[in-house]
Design a protein around this nucleic acid. Structure first.
Length: 892
RNA sequence: GGGCGGUUAGCUCAGCGGGAGAGCGCUACCUUCACACGGUAGAUGUCGUAGGUUCAAAUCCUAUACCGCCCACCA
């Protein structure tokens, strides 16, 4: 069988069938774990992760690829640890995003949503969802993600709609949801309100226009006041000019009247603390309907709110000659009129932050309208405490500060959206008697007067429904049987996501969970993973065309290669510059694993199953290294340090198992007999354990190989096999074996280096002599066959009083001298040069150590073990230096 | 205006108080019976800058520069 394995691992041939076998085996469901796992492990707490639900409009991008890799690593490890494991998957209806897509689609047929009408349009959205909603789920399967696909959730399913409605009604009754008439962020392209955190601010180069507003009656010869504005078009709605009450320059003008140019409205000069005396002229135009600050000032001074824009940000009928103009056309036209009137004082360049819609990037218009809000302060308090006292932990922890900062300065949340696709607000109105209520069930007639009622036209912010994801996907608020799941699996363990939705989503999940689930947190750990940027550090975006398609990467490097490569790059930093070249190493690692396994499988004739056993120092060494790896690797994963975990296992597998243990094993496999059997068992054991450790990151290649290995477990497939037992493996830790094998490896390396220097072919057999102290000689005796084998030195002399052979080169490995007989090739000049250089380096090293050890401060204050270490080093280095000097002298 | 992240070998990045590391690239040799997506041996760094703390600083502190991100109602 083994001979049939190709040299290169070909993911494209293997991934599909393996995924199919996982799926058909039912291993993605909770309760699939358990084979070969201790009862204790099975009794551990269930392990649940909810996926951040991708938008139904979405396709897999690099952020998803990274995020879902991390979640799958967590999920697969927990499953192997025997925990009752479930990864809840599903999609988000994504209100604005989906509505935009569907509007684009019908626009191609020359229609708007108003042509279709609400009901038909929503039907179109559902059709869209049915057609596109499964794309990303299929892509998750390509990645190998072990989600519970048979229980796919959707944020608009009938059950989910009930949950959303329940929340709204409860908050309405508890007075946390209320309707307000105020300035909100309005997207004139999406024609909907947005929450504060759905607005993206960007600095833009703009202008400050200094406009003169004439006084009705000149005061002390002053004929006009000059206001500075970045938005001249809003002057149509001005209802006052404000100055700071402390501004002595203008005290006499407070209470005066100015004539608003063009519109010729008489407006007062008022005094309000809001005005910054240092900025501009000290006069500020007040437009309560178009600026949130002016709105507040307006409330204090009872100013009229004049809304001069319609919902598409065109000037409305109140704008006189400018009516019908787009806001930016109106800006130019109004500035032009001020010039004509001689009232434009001057213009300055001015950089300022401008808000944009996070969905379509249109400039936001602050707009006065009636909207629904959630009162956030009472919700934030327990959510702050949950993080403060560590019930919810952020990883990396610094994100907690970001969370606190937002939570402590939280403002009420505008939740109504003027869209059709979404959860319709369950508030009903009776126009006849003025009755209004939020209802769990639809109503048609007024309970008070019997007149027909109408439902609120607006829908809820998508995040209003997303915030319920961890518990609404588990049957909440249903009772009885339906709530069993929630009792068993809630709260979840880990939430992994990108930093840009800490406020939009993460914080709100904590708040809503604590409110609705009896103060329970929704998850214990939050992983904030790095943002994937392009190779020169830019965000990946459609407009830049610099995005990378993960499916392409899977085709090129295999799902395992992509996953490993992404995991490897997860460090504490906030960004990850990505380049597909970076995955080459990970693909090569998969191939390396494949070939190591091929080697093992090709050498299993006569294999007898059994426990690993220690017949040589190399056996002890590799088992010791494995035990250390398992402990460190497991700890790294516990700390969500995926990059460290990937590095550790890569180094162990490649640099220790492949480079040395397999090479050591070759001779013993040839030898046959008991020697062969022991090494076979150890190879299989170490490979098996390494595959288990690797499986969460590289599920496909490990499964493929594990299936071919002799069974060491009753588990039907690797993904439900037992996770290596770190505590049990620790019995293999053996510092003495690590030291002797290290000595061996150094000797081999020294001999190979000598060959390279003298151009001696690796095939040429050499004679060597080794000189070491007596106890090391004893250790090395067992290792000579390996040395002979790997250094190709069949003739070895070993002892503590060996004489340097004729025509030999001396080289030093730690703790021993190696003499390589090179015959008449010895190049005395080159050797002298080399040794002199070594002496130089070693002297400096010794000097540094001696300086340290002669420093009284060091001796007095450094930790004793550090001092002992330095002393040991001093001895070692000075011995080395002495030997080098002898060698040099011997070459004269 | 406030906060955060980054600055280490040509490139990408680990290391985050006690001997400067990896991968890629580069040089030489090796198509050796697991693997050329490989092996062996090598070369490569005033650890952004300036101060400070410490017996000891790439690592801690303080400034500062540059790159990037986030929050913030100065028109």
């Amino acid at each position: 069988m083994a001979e049939e394995l190709p040299k290169n691992y070909d993911p494209s041939q293997i991934e599909g069938p393996i995924f199919q076998s996982w799926y058909e085996g039912g291993y993605f469901h909770r309760g699939s774990e358990g084979a070969g796992v201790s009862e204790q492990a099975q009794q551990a707490e269930p392990y649940t992760i909810v996926i951040p639900p991708p938008n139904v409009t979405g396709v897999l991008h690099m952020g998803h690829a990274l995020n879902n890799t991390l979640q799958d690593i967590c999920t697969r490890r927990a499953r192997m640890q025997g925990r009752n494991t479930r990864w809840i998957v599903g999609t988000d209806h994504a209100g604005i995003a989906t509505q935009n897509k569907v509007e684009q689609k019908i626009a191609a047929q020359g229609k708007t949503r108003f042509d279709l009408g609400r009901e038909a349009f929503v039907d179109e959205c559902w059709d869209w969802r049915d057609e596109h909603g499964s794309i990303i789920i299929e892509q998750l399967k390509r990645m190998g993600c072990s989600c519970d696909y048979d229980d796919e959730q959707f944020t608009m399913s009938p059950e989910y709609q009930d949950a959303v409605r329940h929340v709204f009604v409860k908050w309405y009754r508890d007075g946390l949801v209320y309707k307000g008439h105020r300035i909100i962020n309005w997207c004139p392209r999406c024609t909907t309100a947005l929450a504060d955190d759905e607005v993206e601010h960007e600095d833009e180069a703009g202008h400050l226009w200094y406009l003169r507003y004439p006084l009705k009656t000149p005061i002390d010869g002053i004929e006009y006041v000059t206001v500075a504005t970045t938005r001249p078009e809003t002057m149509l709605g001005d209802t006052a000019v404000a100055v700071n009450p402390k501004d002595e320059r203008y005290t006499k003008l407070v209470g005066a009247t100015v004539i608003l140019p063009i519109v010729n409205r008489e407006i007062p000069i008022i005094a309000d603390e809001y005005v910054d005396m240092e900025f501009g002229t000290g006069f500020v135009k007040m437009t309560p309907a178009h600026d949130p600050n002016d709105f507040e000032v307006g409330l204090r001074h009872d100013l009229e709110q004049i809304n001069v824009f319609d919902e598409t940000a065109h000037v409305n009928e109140l704008g006189g000659e400018f009516a019908g103009m787009d806001r930016f056309e109106a800006r130019d036209a109004i500035v032009e009129r001020f010039i004509q009137l001689g009232l434009l004082d001057h213009i300055e360049d001015h950089e300022h932050a401008v808000g944009h819609c996070y969905r379509c990037h249109t400039t936001i218009e602050p707009w006065l309208s009636d909207q629904w809000f959630v009162s956030m302060k009472p919700l934030a308090k327990p959510a702050i405490e949950a993080v403060r006292d560590g019930r919810v932990k952020f990883n990396p922890s610094r994100w907690e500060n970001v969370y606190f900062h937002w939570m402590e300065n939280i403002r009420d949340w505008c939740i109504s959206r003027q869209l059709w696709w979404g959860h319709r607000i369950p508030v009903f109105y009776c126009d006849a008697c003025g009755w209004e209520d939020a209802l769990d069930q639809d109503a048609t007639v007024c309970p008070k007067c019997g007149a027909p009622v109408r439902q609120d036209e607006d829908v809820l912010d998508t995040w209003f429904s997303s915030q319920l994801w961890p518990f609404a996907t588990m049957g909440w608020p249903r009772e009885g049987e339906a709530s069993k799941e929630l009792r068993e699996y809630y709260p979840t363990q880990v939430l992994s996501t990108a930093r840009d939705i800490i406020f939009l989503w993460v914080a709100r999940m904590v708040m809503s969970s604590m409110y609705f689930c009896d103060g329970q947190i929704p998850f214990k750990d939050v992983i904030i993973h790095p943002t994937v940027l392009d190779s020169i550090g830019r965000r990946m975006s459609k407009s830049l065309g610099n995005g990378i398609d993960p499916i392409k990467l899977i085709e090129l490097y295999g799902a395992d290669g992509m996953r490993f490569g992404l995991a490897l790059q997860v460090t504490g930093a906030q960004d990850m510059k990505f380049d597909d070249k970076k995955l080459e190493g990970s693909r090569n690692f998969a191939t390396k694993i494949w070939n190591a396994a091929r080697f093992v499988l090709m050498n299993l004739d006569g294999f007898e199953p059994g426990e690993p056993s220690i017949a040589t120092p190399q056996d002890a060494w590799i088992l010791s290294r494995l035990a250390t790896l398992a402990a460190n690797y497991n700890a790294a994963l516990d700390a969500y340090d995926f990059g460290e975990a990937a590095r550790l296992i890569n180094d162990f597998f490649w640099n220790e198992f492949c480079d040395w243990y397999i090479e050591f094993a070759k001779g013993r496999l040839q030898e046959g007999g008991e020697s062969r059997k022991v090494v076979q068992r150890n190879l299989v054991f170490v490979l098996d354990q390494a595959l288990r450790l690797l499986h969460p990151i590289m599920p496909y290649v490990t499964t493929e190989i594990w299936d071919k290995l002799p069974k060491t477990d009753t588990a039907p497939t690797l993904m439900v096999a037992a996770w290596p037992d770190v505590a049990a493996l620790s019995r293999f830790i053996d510092p003495a074996a690590e030291r002797s094998v290290q000595m061996l490896c150094e000797a081999i390396t020294a001999i190979r280096a000598t060959r390279a220097r003298y151009g001696i072919s690796p095939r040429t057999e050499l004679r060597v002599a080794l000189r070491a102290n007596p106890e090391d000689v004893a250790l090395l005796e067992d290792l000579l066959p390996s040395l002979a084998d790997l250094a190709r030195t069949p003739s070895i002399q070993l002892g503590c009083d060996i004489q340097k052979p004729q025509q030999s080169i001396a080289c030093l490995a730690k703790h021993l001298e190696v003499f390589v007989v090179v015959g008449d090739l010895v190049d005395f000049d080159a050797e002298r040069a080399r040794i002199s250089k070594e002496i130089d380096k070693t002297s400096k090293e010794l000097e540094r150590i001696e300086k340290k050890l002669s420093n009284p401060g060091f001796l007095a204050k450094a930790a004793p073990e550090i001092i002992a270490k330095e002393q040991g080093k001093q001895e070692e280095v000075s011995t080395t230096l002495g030997l080098l000097k002898l060698q040099l002298a011997g070459l004269q």
